[in-house]
C-alpha cells in the first residue's frame, strides 16, 4: 500500500471535511448569537416546549436537538458543546439529546441522497423519527431529571455560567 499517497488523501480529505463544517458552523453560531440578542431564541425554543416538557428537559435542550435533526450530528454536537459551556444542560439531558440525534439526524440531506438512488423517502424518515421519539421517551422516564429542573426550568440569563465551564 503506498503509504504516502494514502496519507495525502487522509490529510486533504480531513481538511476538506473541516472546511465543510466551518462553512456551516461559523455562520450559524453567528446567527444564533444574533437571534439571542434579538430575543428570538426564547420564542424559538418555545416551539420545542411540548417536546422538552415530554422529556422533562430545560427548554434550551431543544436548540441542539433541532439543529442536529436538520443539519446533522456534527452541528448538533457543536450546539450541545456550546450549551454545556453555558451551563444549561444536565448529563441526563445530554444523553437524551445524543440518543435522539444518533438515531435521527440530518433528516433532509441524508434522506435526499437515498431518494436520489430510488428509495421510498417517507419510509426512511417517518420510522426513524418515531423510533427516536419513543426511545427517548423511555429514557426520559427511566432516568429522572435533576430536582432543579422540575417542574419548570428557570431560564438562565444568556452568558451566565460561562466561567464554570465543565469542559
Amino acid at each position: 500500500m503506498p503509504v504516502v499517497e494514502v496519507l495525502r488523501e487522509a490529510v486533504t480529505g480531513s481538511l476538506y471535511n473541516i472546511f465543510q463544517m466551518a462553512c456551516f458552523i461559523i455562520p450559524i453560531m453567528f446567527f444564533i448569537e444574533v437571534l439571542r440578542d434579538l430575543n428570538v431564541l426564547d420564542r424559538l425554543a418555545g416551539l420545542g416546549a411540548p417536546l422538552s416538557r415530554l422529556y422533562r428537559m430545560p427548554r434550551e435542550a431543544c436548540l441542539p436537538l433541532f439543529a442536529g435533526l436538520i443539519f446533522g450530528i456534527a452541528f448538533g454536537a457543536g450546539v450541545i458543546l456550546n450549551s454545556i459551556r453555558e451551563g444549561h444542560l444536565s448529563i441526563r439531558d445530554i444523553y437524551i439529546i445524543n440518543v435522539f440525534l444518533v438515531i435521527c439526524h440530518g433528516v433532509i440531506d441524508d434522506t435526499v441522497l437515498f431518494i436520489a438512488i430510488g428509495a421510498e423517502g417517507w419510509l426512511l424518515v417517518v420510522p426513524r423519527v418515531v423510533t427516536a421519539l419513543i426511545v427517548c421517551y423511555f429514557m426520559s422516564r427511566v432516568f429522572k431529571p435533576p430536582a432543579d429542573h422540575l417542574p419548570q426550568p428557570v431560564p438562565t440569563a444568556p452568558g451566565d455560567g460561562k466561567a464554570d465551564s465543565p469542559l
Binding site: V6, L7, E9, A10, V11, G13, S14, N17, I18, M21, A22, I25, I26, P27, I28, M29, F30, F31, I32, E33, V34, R36, D37, A74, A77, G78, V79, L81, N82, L167
Partner: peptide, 30 residues
C-alpha cells in the same frame, strides 16, 4: 459584541470538532 461572540463560539466549536475529526479521518482513510 454579538458578532464577536458568534465568531468566537463558531471557532471554538470548530476547533473542538477538528481535534476529533482529523485522527479518525486518517484512521478510516487507511
Amino acid at each position: 459584541d454579538t458578532c464577536r461572540r458568534g465568531l468566537a463560539n463558531g471557532i471554538w466549536v470548530l476547533w473542538e470538532l477538528t481535534k476529533v475529526t482529523i485522527p479518525i479521518y486518517i484512521f478510516i482513510t487507511f
